[in-house]
């Protein structure tokens, strides 16, 4: 150990931890985790952004904490310990939002609290943080949170644009003046099923670009 050179902070391996979840190992479109919140909070772009940020912070910090404690956590109660860490983080985020972004916190309602049950976070703790050093774990958490977030933002962008005709609350469609020629907002975009269809289309798009994702028959 002593004669091996210390791994640089941003070695190719670590960079990959950060970027893989954005593409080929995306938690939503490839692993199909965390779907419920993707359906629930993507009607408007702003709550989706806040949600994406919250999940990224919770995943990254929980990953870091668990990685630091990984040698002292008893095997048989590890899930409980993980949950306590996640729950603490979620409460912190929730209180923070209530204090500084009350409107968004209202819109997100229970879904901030429900981050605790987000499969992505539990999955990362179990699959990665329990077996890796703190720094890679932190990067992995950041990467997966961002991978989740980017899909949320894409879905929310389309749902807000076509469902409400706005972008971050700015009335794009109205400014374009297409209501006067008979355009109407699509009511189905606001309903949860459409989020599922949009996620499906993203998966379709991604697979048609990256053939390695297609299962062999």
């Amino acid at each position: 150990m002593s004669n091996t050179e210390k791994e640089p902070l941003f070695s190719p391996k670590n960079i990959k931890l950060l970027t893989a979840p954005l593409g080929r190992n995306n938690p939503i479109t490839v692993q199909v985790l965390g779907i419920c919140s993707a359906l629930a909070v993507t009607v408007k772009l702003k709550p989706a952004l806040v949600m994406a940020l919250s999940v990224t912070i919770v995943t990254a910090v929980s990953n870091l904490v668990i990685a630091l404690m990984r040698r002292s956590i008893p095997e048989r109660i590890r899930i409980i310990v993980q949950l306590v860490v996640i729950a603490t983080m979620v409460i912190l985020v929730d209180q923070f939002l209530k204090a500084f972004a009350f409107d968004v916190s209202k819109q997100l309602s229970v879904f901030v609290g429900l981050i605790i049950t987000n499969c992505i976070i539990m999955g990362r703790l179990e699959a990665f943080a329990m077996a890796n050093k703190p720094w890679p774990s932190f990067l992995d958490g950041l990467g997966n949170g961002a991978g989740y977030g980017i899909i949320l933002v894409i879905v929310a962008f389309f749902r807000e644009l076509f469902g409400s005709g706005t972008f971050m609350g700015y009335p794009v469609m109205q400014k374009l003046g297409i209501y006067s020629v008979g355009y109407e907002n699509n009511g189905m975009m606001i309903l949860p099923p459409m989020a599922l269809i949009v996620v499906g289309l993203i998966i379709w798009f991604q697979r048609s670009r990256d053939h390695a994702l297609i299962e062999k028959k």
């Binding site: 109407e184 009511g187 189905m188 975009m189 309903l191």
Partner: peptide, 9 residues
């Protein structure tokens, strides 16, 4: 169905 849910009016 798409029309019904998208443009109920």
């Amino acid at each position: 169905a798409f029309l019904f849910f998208s443009y109920p009016g």
